[in-house]
Amino acid sequence: MHEFIEAFKFIAHNGAVAGRPGLPTLTHLALETLRVGAIGVAISIVIAVPIGVWLGHVHRGSFVAINLGNIGRALPSLAVLAIGDAFLGLGLTVVELALVILAVPPIITNSYLAVDGVDRDLVDAAKGMGMSEGEILRRVELPLAVPLIFAGIRTAAVFVVSTTTIASLAGFSGSLGDVIANETSYHFSGVLGAAICVAALALAVEGALTLVQRALTPRGLLLAEPRRGRVRVADAMPA
């Protein structure tokens, strides 16, 4: 327990360590973690949502969309970062590349499932009303798919927080992982304190995005009985 008390002191001091002036504050590192992560998530959304939505709309490529999720999960963040480092040298670009590689699959998979799973009767009805393909996508499929797409983004965001901290192990500095990777400077109390902050940050991101997701979910869907019998694509944690 003593260690946890010391860790909370470290947090209370915002990451200051006696005898080591000039270390970055925890607030700064937390914001950097979010910034690096947000860039990765943003790029991933731009790439993955259109692909997933389009595949779902044309009801094709289920094999690719779903197995992509599995392959993404099989990629250990550290290995991706390490291999990126081997080929390109470590820097923000390689870290963002790794984040995108890891965040794109769950977003594609979820976007695909979201649009593909929209009730065909609704789509047929919309066709019957004379809507064009584009209109069907915009006015029927997308609104219904938004919650599940967002669930994919949420999964990806939690991934990204985790991977951003792991990037410190590969030598990329600029996240809370720096503290965990540098026990020499921070002692174990600092490492533990940073671990608490990383956990809190991930939970906060998850919590905040869950709220947003709820706000985006059409009321009708909230009330509807959840579909049974379908194995949901479980969220995955990157390593």
Binding site: E3, F4, A7, V158, V161, S162, T165, I166, L169, G177, I180, F188, V191, L192, A194, A195, I196, V198, A199, A202, L203, E206, D235, M237, A239
Partner: peptide, 18 residues
């Protein structure tokens, strides 16, 4: 279990070390 799942691996390992 969601709570446990959400904690980034690097952090969880350290939290258990204490």
């Amino acid at each position: 279990t969601t709570f446990l799942y959400t904690i980034p691996s690097l952090a969880l390992f350290e939290l258990l070390v204490a």
